[in-house]
Simulated scan of single mutants.
Amino acid sequence: MSEPSNIIKRVIGKTVKAIRIKQGLSQEDLAHECNVDRSYISMIEVGRNEPSVTKIFDLCQGLKIKPSDFFKLIEIEYDKAHENG
């Protein structure tokens, strides 16, 4: 797997976790909102799983954030991670 793909998976996970914690949600709470298992949320947050676009929209709904805002956050964090090597 290419390095940019690994960076994206880590950035998505970091961003999901940060928003979830900021909103006071547990992984179980978010999983319930997205109709997935808690372990799926965990695997996303640690960068072991890359959610599909459909699941990203589900996550955004569960996190009460617009997908466009979520992708803006991902882009910012990706650029930071890419610059830092």
Rank of each mutant, 00 (worst) to 15 (best):
Q27K: 14
K22N: 13
L25H: 05
V46P: 00
E33K: 14
C60K: 07
G47H: 11
C34K: 03
F57Q: 01
D37E: 03
K66N: 07
E75N: 13
R38T: 14
M1C: 11
I8D: 09
L63C: 02
V46M: 04
Q61R: 00
F71Q: 06
I65C: 09
Y78M: 15
E33A: 12
K64Q: 03
H82S: 02
L59T: 08
K66T: 05
E45N: 02
N6Y: 07
C60R: 06
K55W: 06
E50Y: 13
S39V: 12
S2Y: 02
P4A: 06
E77R: 05
T15G: 13
I76F: 00
D58L: 10
E75Y: 13
K64Y: 00
S39H: 08
I21T: 15
E28P: 05
S52A: 05
I12N: 05
G47A: 03
L59C: 06
F71K: 03
S26A: 01
N49L: 03
K66E: 09
K9L: 04
D37K: 12
D79M: 15
V53M: 12
T54H: 13
H32L: 15
K17Y: 10
I41Y: 02
K14H: 10
L63Q: 02
V53A: 08
N84R: 11
I74G: 04
Y78G: 01
E77W: 04
S68T: 09
H82A: 03
I21R: 14
E33Y: 12
R20D: 14
S39A: 14
S68C: 01
C34R: 02
S5L: 15
G85H: 12
P4S: 08
E3H: 00
K17D: 08
R10F: 09
E28F: 09
D58F: 11
L63T: 01
F57R: 02
V16C: 10
I76T: 07
V46W: 00
A81N: 11
Q27A: 14
E77Q: 10
F70V: 04
I74S: 10
F70S: 02
K55F: 12
S39N: 10
I19L: 15
K72V: 07
V53Y: 11
E45K: 04
K64N: 07
M1T: 14
I41D: 01
K66R: 08
D29S: 11
D29A: 13
A81M: 15
G24L: 10
G13A: 06
E28Y: 07
N35F: 13
S5P: 12
S26T: 15
I56G: 01
K14I: 08
K17P: 05
V16L: 04
M1P: 14
T54N: 12
R20W: 08
Y40E: 03
H82V: 03
I76W: 07
D69C: 04
V53G: 06
K9W: 02
